[in-house]
Amino acid sequence: MSVAIRLAGCGRTWPGGSIALHPLDLDIAAGETLVLLGPSGCGKTTLLRLIAGLEAPDAGGRVFFDGEDVTRLPIERRHVGMVFQSYALFPNMDVAGNIGYGLRVRGVARAAARRRVDEMLAMMRLDGLGGRRIEALSGGQRQRVALARAIAPRPRVLLLDEPLSALDARLREQLRQEIDALLRSLGITAVYVTHDQAEAMALGDRIAAMEKGRIAQIGTGRDLYHRPANDFVAGFVGDTNRLATPEGERLVRPEHLALRRSATGGFTVVQATFLGPVVRVLLRDAAGRELRADVPDEDVPAPGERVAVLFQGRSLETEAAASPA
């Protein structure tokens, strides 16, 4: 029962006149997971709240769920599920009370609601915690309760606003995998907001990279990584070097560079830092330009040594250079 979402000419201007979101068109296919990726203040949360119905678009903007115009429908009647950054679990209710809330307010019969809550508790591996108070839960458990609460009423669309940002790194990784599996098994249309590119890559069928209230590029993770539309996307999705070549300026990923010791090489090693999987080498040329290269931890040149920098294999191209238009 997942739906396709279409936004037409949706922008959002704050009462003070500052623009949170420039008018944009966006199509999200039924069952697709779209990640909105960008730094804070880029408009990703505003876009999510427009889809949710927590914000109304500026005049002229339209939101459609499967062709139905829901622009004037407030969130409580859009039948969406939403997971908030702060979880916003109700402190006056226990775990089961939170998960069943969406069923209760919609008047689902008591027995059916209880069955659905039990189902959600099992699905989220929260068995036996139904009577637990919210403040007695760990961060990861709260996250699961928030997800269960959003999913329990079988929403048409699932919206997630930085759901993992309050968790520590290891838990984040684990829950990311769980959410990924969950979204695939439910086949629900989902919009997921994050500022973490690893999260975006792992979860998104497509990623919309956002900058200053606009979508800078939308495509698969591979598209954004290998063919970034502009400097912003290249810089935000992965690390990047700007390299002058005879063919013009190029954006090159550090892991795509290789080093060879050479007395006539153009670069000097400034610093080599062991990062675990790779060694990050900072290089500088005679003109003072800096370059970062990630190389395997084998026979790494030491600071002060002169090296030549190769970009073998695939080198990075900007979208503009690659596309005929």
């Binding site: 407030p74 039948h79 916003a88 679990l89 809330y101």
Partner: peptide
Amino acid sequence: LDLKGLEEAARACGASWPQRFLGVVLPN
């Protein structure tokens, strides 16, 4: 309280204003 967040969460669950005022705001 995170009043705004709690109310938005209640709205996302489908709660009308009286439902969320009586069921979420007042008890807290």
